[in-house]
Lab assay of single mutants.
Amino acid sequence: TRVETATETAWISLVTALHLVLGLSAVLGLLLLRWQFPAHYRRLRHALW
Rank of each mutant, 00 (worst) to 15 (best):
L48H: 05
H46D: 12
W11Q: 03
A17K: 01
A6H: 07
A47V: 09
L22K: 01
H46S: 08
P38Y: 14
Y41K: 08
L33I: 09
Y41I: 14
H19C: 00
L28Y: 07
L44V: 13
T5D: 03
L32Y: 02
A26R: 06
R43A: 08
W35E: 12
L20P: 07
Y41Q: 01
A10L: 02
W35D: 03
L30T: 09
W49A: 02
R45N: 00
G29T: 14
L48I: 15
S13E: 01
L24T: 06
L33Y: 09
R45T: 08
R43W: 08
L20E: 04
A26V: 10
A47Q: 07
T1K: 12
G23F: 13
L44R: 06
V3A: 04
R34V: 02
Y41S: 11
L24W: 06
L28M: 11
R45M: 07
L31H: 03
V15G: 04
G29Q: 00
A17L: 12
T16D: 00
S13P: 06
H19K: 03
R42C: 10
R45H: 09
L30K: 00
G23A: 14
L14I: 10
L31F: 13
R2Q: 14
L30Q: 02
V21M: 10
R34P: 06
V21H: 00
A39V: 15
H19G: 03
S25T: 14
V27P: 04
V27A: 10
A10S: 12
V15F: 03
E4M: 15
H46R: 11
A6C: 08
L31Q: 08
S13L: 10
R45G: 04
A10H: 08
A26T: 09
I12Y: 08
R42K: 11
A17S: 08
G23I: 14
T7F: 08
W49D: 08
V3W: 02
T5Q: 00
W11M: 06
S13A: 12
A26F: 12
V15E: 00
W35A: 15
A26N: 04
V21C: 12
A10M: 04
S13G: 11
L33G: 06
T16M: 07
H46P: 01
A26M: 09
P38T: 12
